[in-house]
């Protein structure tokens, strides 16, 4: 039922673990639904220089977390925010329909981590306010 790519990332997830002194943290999900996904980012010169994740959840949730970190590492914040749940699922060679919400979790956790970074750095940069994504004004 899972693509080879999903299983590959599930068996050997990339960038997993927590991070000391992250610049931004985003958490999404709920233990009663079975999935909780947390993303830590380091940002330098508007680029994601390092990223780590921790996930409680099924194979899809773990694979989605892993591939998302790979997809955004080295990207600018704007580029990272453009990555959609469809892009994540596509990169994994597709997800079973019932598991699409997992890619949504990753997209959301990443967005929250970036917002968190911007919020923390609001006073340092006038740029932050302008680039906040819609829907979740800090």
């Amino acid at each position: 039922m899972y693509s080879e790519k999903v299983l590959e990332h599930f068996y050997s997830p990339k960038n997993w673990g927590n991070m000391k002194d992250p610049d931004g943290v985003g958490e999404m999900g709920n233990p009663s639904c079975g999935d909780v996904l947390k993303i830590y980012i380091k940002v330098k010169d508007n680029k994601i220089t390092d990223i780590k994740f921790e996930t409680l959840g099924c194979a899809a949730a773990i694979a989605v977390s892993s591939i998302t970190t790979e997809m955004v590492k080295g990207k600018t914040l704007e580029e990272a925010l453009k990555i959609s749940k469809q892009d994540i699922a596509k990169e994994l060679g597709g997800l079973p329909p019932a598991k699409m919400h997992c890619s949504n979790l990753a997209e959301e956790a990443l967005r929250i981590a970036i917002e968190n970074f911007k919020e923390k750095n609001k006073n340092l940069s006038g740029e932050a306010e302008r680039t906040l994504p819609t829907g979740r004004q800090a």
């Binding site: 997993w16 958490e27 909780v36 947390k38 921790e54 409680l56």
Partner: peptide
């Protein structure tokens, strides 16, 4: 291994 991955 899975507990190590668990953010909670």
């Amino acid at each position: 291994r899975l507990r190590k991955l668990n953010p909670l």
